[in-house]
C-alpha cells in the first residue's frame, strides 16, 4: 500500500512532523479538560496500534490485552506509591514486565487460532488479573493511591499529555517499522495462510511470539502512564474485559491493515462515545453505540479506512 511517488524518508519526515505537532499542541493554550480528553484518546490509540501488530498484521485477535495494560499500570502505580519513583522512569519497567507475561503465556496461547485464541487470551487476562490483585504483601486489593504528577493541575495534565503523546509516537513508529520490514511481510503471510507461510520457510512460531511480545510491551508502556492519571486504582479498574474488547473494536472499526486504522478507530470511537455521553446520556449513548457496531460490521466489515474511499467516492458522485 505504498503511496506513489514518495520515498520512505519523506513519509518518516512527515510522520515526525506530525509527532512534533502533537507534542506542541498543549502550548497553544489547551484547557485542562481538553488535555484530559486528548490523553484518553491517545491512550486508546496507543493501545489499539500496539494491539494491531498482533491482531491486524498477524491476524491473531487478542481479547485479553487489558492484561498488559494492567501489568504496566500496576507496575508504575506500585513503584510510585511504595518507592516514590516517577512513572516516567518506571513505565519501561512496566513494558518489560508486560513483555515477560507475553513470553510466559505466548507460546501456549499462540498454538490456538481464531476464536480459540481470542478466548484463551480473554481467560489469560482474567488469570493475570487475579494474580496481580492478590500478590502477597503488595495490598493491591485494598486499592493503590497514585499521587499527581505535579503540584499544579495544569502541569499535571501537561506532563500526562506529553508522556502519552510520546508513547503514541513510539507505538506508531514501531508499528510502521514492522509494517515496512520483512518481518511485517512475514506476519502478513501468516495472516493470509499460516500453513503456506510455514512451508515457505517463515519461522511462524517465533515471529508470532515476537509480534505478541512487542504488542504487549507497547501496551504495557501505555498502561504505565495511564494509571498515573487515575488518582486511585480500584482492583478491577485496569484489567477490565470491557477495555480489552474496546481495543479490538477500535482496530476493527478503523481498519487493521496498517497503523492508521486503529489510530483512527480509537480517535473516532472514543470521541464519539464521549460526545454522545455528554449530549444524550449514558443509556442512549450505549444504545447508539451498539447500533453503530451492528451497522459497521454489516456495512464496513474491513473498517472505516477500507470503506472510506468507497464512501467518499459515493458521496462525491451525489
Amino acid at each position: 500500500m505504498r503511496p506513489r511517488g514518495r520515498s520512505e524518508r519523506t513519509i518518516w519526515l512527515m510522520l515526525a512532523a506530525a509527532g512534533v505537532g502533537l507534542l506542541a499542541v498543549p502550548f497553544t493554550g489547551m484547557s485542562i479538560y481538553l488535555m484530559s480528553v486528548a490523553f484518553v484518546v491517545m491512550f486508546h490509540a496507543a493501545a489499539a496500534v500496539s494491539w494491531n501488530i498482533l491482531g491486524g498484521y498477524a491476524g491473531y485477535e487478542s481479547f485479553g490485552h487489558s492484561a498488559f495494560i494492567g501489568v504496566g499500570a500496576y507496575t508504575t502505580a506500585l513503584l510510585l506509591s511504595h518507592q516514590g519513583l516517577s512513572p516516567l522512569l518506571t513505565a519501561p519497567v512496566g513494558a518489560l514486565l508486560a513483555a515477560a507475561v507475553a513470553v510466559a503465556v505466548g507460546y501456549p496461547c499462540l498454538r490456538l487460532r481464531g476464536p480459540y485464541f481470542a478466548l484463551v487470551t480473554l481467560v489469560v487476562s482474567l488469570a493475570v488479573s487475579v494474580v496481580v490483585v492478590n500478590l502477597p504483601g503488595l495490598n493491591v486489593a485494598s486499592g493503590v493511591f497514585v499521587s499527581r504528577p505535579a503540584a499544579s493541575p495544569v502541569m499535571s495534565r501537561f506532563i500526562l499529555y506529553e508522556a502519552m503523546a510520546v508513547i503514541l509516537i513510539v507505538a506508531v513508529a514501531v508499528a510502521r517499522a514492522v509494517e515496512r520490514s520483512r518481518f511485517g511481510v512475514a506476519l502478513a503471510a501468516i495472516r493470509e495462510d499460516e500453513e503456506v507461510a510455514a512451508t515457505q520457510g517463515v519461522p511462524t512460531t517465533r515471529f508470532k511470539l515476537v509480534a505478541f511480545v512487542v504488542s504487549a510491551a507497547l501496551t504495557g508502556l501505555a498502561g504505565g502512564i495511564f494509571s498515573w492519571s487515575r488518582g486511585f486504582l480500584d482492583p478491577g479498574d485496569m484489567f477490565s474485559v470491557n477495555l480489552s474488547v474496546l481495543i479490538v473494536l477500535f482496530a476493527l472499526f478503523g481498519g487493521r491493515r496498517s497503523w492508521v486504522g486503529p489510530l483512527l478507530g480509537a480517535l473516532v470511537v472514543t470521541l464519539a462515545r464521549e460526545f454522545l455521553f455528554i449530549v444524550i446520556g449514558e443509556d442512549a449513548a450505549q444504545i447508539l453505540f451498539g447500533v453503530l457496531l451492528v451497522v459497521v460490521i454489516l456495512f464496513m466489515p474491513n473498517g472505516l479506512i477500507a470503506a472510506a474511499p468507497r464512501l467518499l467516492r459515493n458521496g462525491a458522485r451525489r
Binding site: 492508521v260 483512527l264 480517535l267 470521541l271 472505516l304 479506512i305 472510506a308 474511499p309 467518499l312
Partner: peptide, 12 residues
C-alpha cells in the same frame, strides 16, 4: 486516499 481520511479525521 490515506491523506484524505487523515484530514477528515482531523476535521472530526
Amino acid at each position: 486516499r490515506r491523506r484524505i481520511t487523515l484530514v477528515a479525521a482531523l476535521a472530526l
